[in-house]
Design a protein around this nucleic acid. Sequence first.
DNA 1: AGCATGACGTGAA
DNA 2: GTTCACGCCATGC
Length: 104
Amino acid sequence: MENENFFNQVYEAVKLIPKGKVSTYGEIARFLGKPYYARQVGWALHKNPYPIKVPCHRVVFSDGSLSSAFAFGGANEQYRLLADEGVTFIANKVDLKRCLYKLI
DNA sequence: AGCATGACGTGAA
DNA sequence: GTTCACGCCATGC
């Protein structure tokens, strides 16, 4: 199915994010050629049975906010993971200006 | 087949 | 700067 392929693309894109960097749902969606699929990207990570192989914690909102329903233990845990990788935070938000990884 | 929901994004108040 | 509302597409019921 083409759709599953899209999901797979999402996982691959997320796996491409290096340590200490983050990406956004919109960026990934755009990277896959579907700029309006940000929601489906998030959905793919939420619904999909894919394990820790995909560093979902490196994917945040376009404004740097963390997902409220993070499945790894909560936004607090995600925050800790990112900070541990060297990602800088500003006002509880990821410093995209410095840590945003552009797949394109 | 149609309605409601959702890990989003952007614009406006 | 923060908060609200609308719009986008796919999935679930």
